[in-house]
């Protein structure tokens, strides 16, 4: 396989990893805040805290890994995305900073004010919305190129239905993914009340997730016809994804095995995410930058891939240890250790 394909696949996998762990994280913060608002805090907040505490830092690293990696493998993306994203990415950064640090301040520093819970929960929803702007821009049509600069056409961006569909999709899927995961986690913790509540949330958010995802495919038809065509050629991938979705919802509905439901959900998003990624090929930024044009030199590519493999040898056992100690440890999940 060509080096640039390895590069983009690695990055795509990590971006997917970020989307899953960050969705759980953002969604959990939101549900936590919402439960305070509706006086159901006693039901789910323990479950959420127990999961989030040991992993909040790791979640952040997935994002750093992705943007360092993409500049490493594709240095030209730094020029294009770096120049146009100054404002939206800075706003995401500020939100991430507030959210990440206030999590630590309130958990370890005992800042027990409802205001922080709300701030934490609701800022978490703005982050996926602001980050998903990148996906919109990559479809092309929002960048003005002049003699010595490029800039973002905000008017065009904010009036495009595509932008808003992607924003809504990111919000709905964050809440859906998070709710399914937490249902499983609460069930493992033998907390029936939390399981029932989270299962309800999962079922509620499954609907808008699917509606917007289908809507976006239709909107691409008028926005980026080439991409739309490529997606149609991969119709079978999206069909598989849709069937996995139905299977997940069925399991949730019948109160079946929530572990399997979560795995099916991962499968659903994985297939759709790769289907989307493959159909976007060969563009990194339509129509300015393709994967071949933006790729780094061969020497660097080889070095990065070796570093990546070596890093994985270190990372996978460590992640496994983390999961074993906190996610798959019966006593921890059931709250028998105090932190």
């Amino acid at each position: 396989m060509a080096y640039e394909l390895i590069g983009i696949s690695v990055l795509w996998v990590f971006l997917f990893g970020y989307i899953i762990v960050a969705s759980i994280d953002f969604g959990a913060g939101f549900f936590n805040a919402y439960s305070v608002l509706t006086n159901k805090h006693h039901i789910i907040s323990n479950i959420i805290q127990r999961y989030l505490s040991p992993v909040w830092e790791v979640t952040n690293v997935f994002l750093v890994f992705f943007f360092v990696g993409i500049v490493g493998f594709f240095p030209s993306t730094a020029y294009y995305y770096g120049t146009v994203l100054l404002v939206p990415a800075s706003l995401s950064l500020v939100l991430l900073a507030i959210r990440g640090s206030y999590y630590a301040f309130s958990t370890y520093g005992q800042l027990k004010s409802k205001m922080w819970i709300y701030l934490y929960g609701f800022s978490g929803l703005l982050i996926p919305a602001s980050l998903s702007i990148v996906l919109t821009i990559s479809e092309g049509g929002f960048i003005k190129e002049s003699a010595n600069s490029i800039s973002l056409n905000y008017a065009e961006l904010f009036t495009s239905p595509l932008t808003w569909s992607i924003v809504v999709l990111s919000l709905a899927s964050v809440l859906y993914i998070s709710a399914v995961f937490l249902t499983w986690y609460a069930n493992k913790a033998k907390d029936d009340e939390a399981t029932a509540l989270l299962r309800k949330y999962a079922l509620i958010w499954s609907v808008p997730t699917m509606v917007t995802a289908s809507g976006i495919i239709v909107e691409l038809r008028s926005h980026n016809f080439e991409h739309f065509q490529n997606m149609l050629n991969l119709w079978w991938l999206f069909l598989i994804s849709g069937m996995l979705f139905l299977a997940t919802v069925r399991l949730l509905w019948q109160k079946g095995n929530y572990g399997v439901a979560f795995i099916l959900l991962i499968g659903q998003f994985l297939v759709a995410f790769f289907g989307y990624g493959i159909s976007h090929y060969p563009y990194l930024l339509y129509p300015f930058l393709t994967i071949e044009q933006g790729f780094t030199s061969e020497g660097m590519a080889v070095a990065l891939i070796i570093a990546f493999l070596a890093g994985l040898c270190l990372l996978l056992p460590s992640l496994f240890l983390l999961l074993r100690l906190f996610l798959f440890n019966k006593n921890y999940v059931e709250g028998k250790y105090k932190g």
Partner: peptide, 8 residues
């Protein structure tokens, strides 16, 4: 890019 990547 290599040391930057290794830093992460």
């Amino acid at each position: 890019a290599l040391p930057l990547f290794m830093e992460t």
